[in-house]
Protein backbone atom coordinates (compact mmCIF):
# COMPACT_ATOMS: atom_id res chain seq x y z
CA UNK A 1 0.00 0.00 0.00
CA UNK A 2 1.13 3.53 -0.75
CA UNK A 3 2.38 5.11 2.49
CA UNK A 4 0.71 8.52 2.11
CA UNK A 5 2.32 11.01 4.55
CA UNK A 6 -1.10 12.49 5.41
CA UNK A 7 -2.40 9.14 6.65
CA UNK A 8 0.79 8.28 8.54
CA UNK A 9 0.73 11.65 10.31
CA UNK A 10 -2.99 11.32 10.99
CA UNK A 11 -2.86 7.86 12.58
CA UNK A 12 0.25 8.69 14.64
CA UNK A 13 -0.74 12.07 16.05
CA UNK A 14 -4.46 11.52 16.46
CA UNK A 15 -3.64 8.22 18.21
CA UNK A 16 -1.36 10.06 20.67
CA UNK A 17 -3.83 12.93 21.09
CA UNK A 18 -6.79 10.67 21.85
CA UNK A 19 -4.56 8.56 24.12
CA UNK A 20 -3.71 11.66 26.16
CA UNK A 21 -7.41 12.62 26.28
CA UNK A 22 -8.17 9.15 27.67
CA UNK A 23 -5.75 9.58 30.58
CA UNK A 24 -6.95 13.14 31.25
CA UNK A 25 -10.52 11.84 31.27
CA UNK A 26 -10.00 9.09 33.84
CA UNK A 27 -7.53 10.96 36.05
CA UNK A 28 -9.09 11.13 39.56
CA UNK A 29 -6.95 14.18 40.42
CA UNK A 30 -6.66 16.02 37.10
CA UNK A 31 -4.60 19.19 36.72
CA UNK A 32 -6.49 22.48 36.71
CA UNK A 33 -5.86 25.99 35.43
CA UNK A 34 -2.83 26.64 33.27
CA UNK A 35 -1.35 23.15 33.67
CA UNK A 36 -4.64 21.66 32.44
CA UNK A 37 -4.64 24.13 29.56
CA UNK A 38 -1.20 22.94 28.39
CA UNK A 39 -2.21 19.27 28.59
CA UNK A 40 -5.47 19.80 26.68
CA UNK A 41 -3.72 21.99 24.11
CA UNK A 42 -1.22 19.20 23.37
CA UNK A 43 -4.00 16.59 23.16
CA UNK A 44 -6.13 18.71 20.80
CA UNK A 45 -3.10 19.63 18.69
CA UNK A 46 -2.51 15.90 18.12
CA UNK A 47 -6.11 14.80 17.72
CA UNK A 48 -7.40 17.72 15.62
CA UNK A 49 -4.14 18.16 13.70
CA UNK A 50 -4.22 14.48 12.80
CA UNK A 51 -7.83 14.64 11.67
CA UNK A 52 -7.10 17.70 9.52
CA UNK A 53 -4.06 15.96 7.98
CA UNK A 54 -6.30 13.04 7.00
CA UNK A 55 -8.51 15.33 4.92
CA UNK A 56 -5.52 16.30 2.73
CA UNK A 57 -5.74 13.05 0.80
CA UNK A 58 -9.44 13.47 -0.02
CA UNK A 59 -10.48 14.28 -3.58
CA UNK A 60 -13.27 16.56 -2.28
CA UNK A 61 -12.59 17.64 1.33
CA UNK A 62 -15.38 20.23 1.10
CA UNK A 63 -17.91 17.38 1.17
CA UNK A 64 -16.40 15.86 4.34
CA UNK A 65 -19.59 16.48 6.36
CA UNK A 66 -21.36 13.80 4.32
CA UNK A 67 -18.99 11.24 5.83
CA UNK A 68 -20.95 11.28 9.11
CA UNK A 69 -24.02 9.68 7.53
CA UNK A 70 -23.19 6.00 7.02
CA UNK A 71 -22.42 4.81 10.57
CA UNK A 72 -24.53 1.68 10.05
CA UNK A 73 -21.99 -0.01 7.77
CA UNK A 74 -18.88 2.15 7.41
CA UNK A 75 -16.02 2.17 9.94
CA UNK A 76 -14.75 5.42 8.41
CA UNK A 77 -18.08 7.07 9.09
CA UNK A 78 -18.15 5.66 12.66
CA UNK A 79 -14.66 7.01 13.22
CA UNK A 80 -15.68 10.51 12.16
CA UNK A 81 -18.66 10.49 14.52
CA UNK A 82 -16.65 9.10 17.47
CA UNK A 83 -13.87 11.64 16.92
CA UNK A 84 -16.13 14.69 16.80
CA UNK A 85 -18.27 13.50 19.74
CA UNK A 86 -15.16 12.85 21.86
CA UNK A 87 -13.61 16.20 21.00
CA UNK A 88 -16.84 18.03 21.94
CA UNK A 89 -17.26 16.15 25.26
CA UNK A 90 -13.61 16.60 26.23
CA UNK A 91 -13.75 20.30 25.29
CA UNK A 92 -16.53 20.74 27.86
CA UNK A 93 -14.64 18.65 30.45
CA UNK A 94 -11.43 20.55 29.73
CA UNK A 95 -13.17 23.92 30.00
CA UNK A 96 -14.39 22.92 33.46
CA UNK A 97 -10.83 22.14 34.59
CA UNK A 98 -9.12 25.10 32.93
CA UNK A 99 -11.55 27.93 33.60
CA UNK A 100 -13.57 26.87 36.66
CA UNK A 101 -11.24 24.45 38.42
CA UNK A 102 -14.22 22.07 38.40
CA UNK A 103 -13.76 18.32 37.93
CA UNK A 104 -16.83 16.87 36.18
CA UNK A 105 -15.72 13.25 36.51
CA UNK A 106 -18.57 11.44 34.64
CA UNK A 107 -18.01 13.71 31.63
CA UNK A 108 -14.33 12.75 31.70
CA UNK A 109 -15.16 9.03 31.81
CA UNK A 110 -17.52 9.43 28.86
CA UNK A 111 -14.81 11.31 26.93
CA UNK A 112 -12.25 8.61 27.80
CA UNK A 113 -14.59 5.96 26.45
CA UNK A 114 -15.06 8.08 23.30
CA UNK A 115 -11.27 8.38 22.88
CA UNK A 116 -10.92 4.59 23.01
CA UNK A 117 -13.82 4.19 20.55
CA UNK A 118 -12.19 6.66 18.16
CA UNK A 119 -8.87 4.81 18.12
CA UNK A 120 -10.66 1.47 17.77
CA UNK A 121 -12.81 2.65 14.85
CA UNK A 122 -9.69 4.08 13.16
CA UNK A 123 -7.97 0.70 13.43
CA UNK A 124 -11.03 -1.13 12.08
CA UNK A 125 -10.86 0.89 8.85
CA UNK A 126 -7.71 -1.14 8.15
CA UNK A 127 -8.51 -4.35 10.03
CA UNK A 128 -11.79 -4.84 8.11
CA UNK A 129 -10.08 -5.11 4.71
CA UNK A 130 -10.01 -8.69 3.49
CA UNK A 131 -8.05 -7.43 0.48
CA UNK A 132 -5.02 -6.68 2.70
CA UNK A 133 -4.31 -9.91 4.63
CA UNK A 134 -1.58 -8.29 6.75
CA UNK A 135 -4.13 -5.89 8.24
CA UNK A 136 -7.09 -8.21 8.67
CA UNK A 137 -6.09 -9.52 12.10
CA UNK A 138 -6.83 -8.83 15.79
CA UNK A 139 -3.30 -7.43 16.24
CA UNK A 140 -4.24 -4.35 14.16
CA UNK A 141 -6.83 -2.91 16.61
CA UNK A 142 -4.86 -4.25 19.60
CA UNK A 143 -1.72 -2.40 18.49
CA UNK A 144 -3.53 0.84 17.63
CA UNK A 145 -5.13 0.83 21.10
CA UNK A 146 -1.94 -0.11 22.97
CA UNK A 147 0.16 2.48 21.14
CA UNK A 148 -2.44 5.15 21.78
CA UNK A 149 -2.76 4.27 25.48
CA UNK A 150 1.00 3.85 25.97
CA UNK A 151 1.91 7.03 24.11
CA UNK A 152 -0.92 8.90 25.84
CA UNK A 153 0.31 7.77 29.25
CA UNK A 154 3.81 8.91 28.29
CA UNK A 155 2.49 12.36 27.32
CA UNK A 156 0.38 12.51 30.49
CA UNK A 157 3.45 11.75 32.60
CA UNK A 158 1.74 8.62 33.95
CA UNK A 159 4.87 6.48 34.39
CA UNK A 160 3.06 3.71 36.30
CA UNK A 161 0.99 2.84 33.23
CA UNK A 162 3.28 4.07 30.44
CA UNK A 163 6.01 1.59 31.36
CA UNK A 164 4.04 -1.68 31.15
CA UNK A 165 1.91 -0.48 28.22
CA UNK A 166 4.95 0.42 26.11
CA UNK A 167 6.63 -2.90 26.91
CA UNK A 168 3.49 -4.88 25.94
CA UNK A 169 3.05 -2.75 22.80
CA UNK A 170 6.66 -3.38 21.74
CA UNK A 171 6.33 -7.14 22.20
CA UNK A 172 2.98 -7.20 20.37
CA UNK A 173 4.43 -5.13 17.52
CA UNK A 174 7.27 -7.63 17.07
CA UNK A 175 4.73 -10.49 17.08
CA UNK A 176 2.49 -8.64 14.58
CA UNK A 177 5.41 -8.21 12.17
CA UNK A 178 6.49 -11.83 12.53
CA UNK A 179 2.98 -13.25 12.15
CA UNK A 180 1.99 -10.74 9.46
CA UNK A 181 4.80 -11.85 7.15
CA UNK A 182 3.00 -15.13 6.45
CA UNK A 183 -0.58 -13.91 6.26
CA UNK A 184 -0.71 -13.12 2.53
CA UNK A 185 0.30 -16.69 1.71
CA UNK A 186 -2.12 -18.01 4.34
CA UNK A 187 -5.04 -16.02 2.87
CA UNK A 188 -5.28 -18.45 -0.05
CA UNK A 189 -5.53 -15.71 -2.69
CA UNK A 190 -3.04 -16.36 -5.50
CA UNK A 191 -2.63 -15.51 -9.17
CA UNK A 192 -4.40 -18.80 -9.87
CA UNK A 193 -7.55 -17.87 -7.91
CA UNK A 194 -7.39 -14.28 -9.17
CA UNK A 195 -7.51 -15.38 -12.79
CA UNK A 196 -9.35 -18.69 -12.32
CA UNK A 197 -6.79 -20.27 -14.65
CA UNK A 198 -5.10 -22.44 -12.02
CA UNK A 199 -6.73 -25.62 -13.38
CA UNK A 200 -4.59 -25.29 -16.54
CA UNK A 201 -1.24 -24.63 -14.90
CA UNK A 202 1.02 -21.98 -13.37
CA UNK A 203 -0.03 -18.41 -14.18
CA UNK A 204 2.48 -15.68 -15.04
CA UNK A 205 1.71 -12.07 -15.94
CA UNK A 206 2.75 -11.82 -19.58
CA UNK A 207 1.70 -8.33 -20.57
CA UNK A 208 0.17 -5.58 -18.41
CA UNK A 209 -2.91 -3.75 -19.72
CA UNK A 210 -0.95 -0.56 -20.39
CA UNK A 211 2.59 0.65 -20.89
CA UNK A 212 2.63 3.20 -18.07
CA UNK A 213 1.38 3.15 -14.50
CA UNK A 214 -2.12 3.72 -13.15
CA UNK A 215 -4.03 4.66 -9.99
CA UNK A 216 -4.19 1.05 -8.80
CA UNK A 217 -0.46 0.46 -9.14
CA UNK A 218 0.42 3.76 -7.46
CA UNK A 219 -2.00 3.13 -4.59
CA UNK A 220 -1.56 -0.58 -3.96
CA UNK A 221 1.82 -1.73 -5.22
CA UNK A 222 4.61 -0.14 -3.21
CA UNK A 223 7.97 -1.88 -3.27
CA UNK A 224 10.44 0.85 -2.27
CA UNK A 225 9.46 0.93 1.40
CA UNK A 226 9.94 -2.80 1.87
CA UNK A 227 13.55 -2.75 0.74
CA UNK A 228 14.83 -1.67 4.16
CA UNK A 229 12.09 -3.34 6.18
CA UNK A 230 14.37 -5.14 8.62
CA UNK A 231 16.45 -2.06 9.42
CA UNK A 232 13.28 0.03 9.82
CA UNK A 233 11.78 -2.56 12.15
CA UNK A 234 14.81 -2.43 14.42
CA UNK A 235 14.84 1.39 14.33
CA UNK A 236 11.12 1.51 15.15
CA UNK A 237 11.50 -0.90 18.09
CA UNK A 238 14.51 0.94 19.53
CA UNK A 239 13.10 4.46 19.12
CA UNK A 240 9.47 3.62 19.85
CA UNK A 241 9.88 1.35 22.87
CA UNK A 242 13.43 0.64 24.11
CA UNK A 243 14.60 4.26 24.49
CA UNK A 244 11.36 5.52 26.15
CA UNK A 245 11.32 2.56 28.55
CA UNK A 246 14.98 3.16 29.55
CA UNK A 247 14.23 6.87 30.04
CA UNK A 248 11.25 6.04 32.26
CA UNK A 249 13.34 3.65 34.35
CA UNK A 250 15.86 6.40 35.13
CA UNK A 251 15.18 8.97 37.85
CA UNK A 252 12.53 11.40 36.66
CA UNK A 253 13.74 14.53 34.95
CA UNK A 254 11.98 16.78 32.43
CA UNK A 255 14.77 16.23 29.91
CA UNK A 256 14.44 12.46 30.18
CA UNK A 257 10.71 12.77 29.61
CA UNK A 258 11.23 14.96 26.56
CA UNK A 259 13.71 12.48 25.04
CA UNK A 260 11.27 9.64 25.75
CA UNK A 261 8.37 11.44 24.04
CA UNK A 262 10.32 12.57 20.97
CA UNK A 263 11.90 9.15 20.54
CA UNK A 264 8.54 7.40 20.92
CA UNK A 265 6.90 9.63 18.28
CA UNK A 266 9.77 8.99 15.84
CA UNK A 267 9.45 5.24 16.46
CA UNK A 268 5.70 5.24 15.90
CA UNK A 269 6.13 7.24 12.67
CA UNK A 270 8.61 4.60 11.46
CA UNK A 271 6.34 1.68 12.33
CA UNK A 272 3.33 3.40 10.75
CA UNK A 273 5.35 3.86 7.55
CA UNK A 274 6.02 0.12 7.59
CA UNK A 275 2.34 -0.59 8.42
CA UNK A 276 1.44 0.85 5.02
CA UNK A 277 4.56 0.14 2.96
CA UNK A 278 4.68 -3.55 3.89
CA UNK A 279 0.95 -4.20 3.49
CA UNK A 280 0.25 -6.02 0.26
CA UNK A 281 -3.10 -5.70 -1.52
CA UNK A 282 -4.41 -8.72 -3.44
CA UNK A 283 -5.03 -6.61 -6.57
CA UNK A 284 -1.26 -6.64 -7.14
CA UNK A 285 -1.64 -10.27 -8.19
CA UNK A 286 -3.34 -9.19 -11.42
CA UNK A 287 -0.12 -7.36 -12.25
CA UNK A 288 2.08 -10.25 -11.15
CA UNK A 289 3.34 -8.00 -8.35
CA UNK A 290 2.85 -7.63 -4.63
Amino acid sequence: MHPAPSVILFTTFSGLGFGLLFWLGINPNPPTGWVAFVFFAIAYLGAVGGLLASTFHLGHPERALKAFSQWKTSWLSREGICAVATLLIMALYGAGLVFFGAHWAPLGWLGALGALATVFTTSMIYAQLKTVPRWKHWTTPALFLLLSLGGGALLAGNVRFALPLLIIAGVLQAFAWFHGDGRFAASGTTMETATGLGHIGTVRAFEPPHTGTNYLMKEFIHVVGRKHALQLRVIALVLGFVVPVLMLLMTFHHWNALVAVVSHIAGVLALRWLFFAQAEHVVGLYYGKR
Binding site: L58, G59, H60, P61, K130, T189, F220, V283
Partner: peptide, 27 residues
Amino acid sequence: QDCIGCGLCAWACPYGARELDEKAGVM
Protein backbone atom coordinates in the same frame (compact mmCIF):
# COMPACT_ATOMS: atom_id res chain seq x y z
CA GLN B 1 -22.03 14.43 -6.15
CA ASP B 2 -21.63 12.66 -2.77
CA CYS B 3 -18.18 11.11 -3.30
CA ILE B 4 -15.42 12.72 -1.17
CA GLY B 5 -12.68 10.79 -2.96
CA CYS B 6 -11.31 9.04 0.13
CA GLY B 7 -10.47 5.95 -1.92
CA LEU B 8 -11.52 3.43 0.74
CA CYS B 9 -13.86 1.62 -1.71
CA ALA B 10 -10.91 1.02 -4.05
CA TRP B 11 -8.99 -0.40 -1.07
CA ALA B 12 -11.87 -2.76 -0.30
CA CYS B 13 -12.21 -4.06 -3.88
CA PRO B 14 -10.01 -7.12 -4.54
CA TYR B 15 -10.35 -6.78 -8.32
CA GLY B 16 -9.03 -3.27 -8.91
CA ALA B 17 -12.35 -2.30 -10.44
CA ARG B 18 -12.44 1.22 -9.01
CA GLU B 19 -10.09 4.03 -9.97
CA LEU B 20 -9.99 7.51 -8.47
CA ASP B 21 -10.00 10.04 -11.27
CA GLU B 22 -7.07 12.38 -10.68
CA LYS B 23 -8.70 15.34 -12.41
CA ALA B 24 -12.24 15.05 -11.01
CA GLY B 25 -11.21 13.74 -7.55
CA VAL B 26 -14.09 11.25 -7.50
CA MET B 27 -14.23 7.47 -7.75
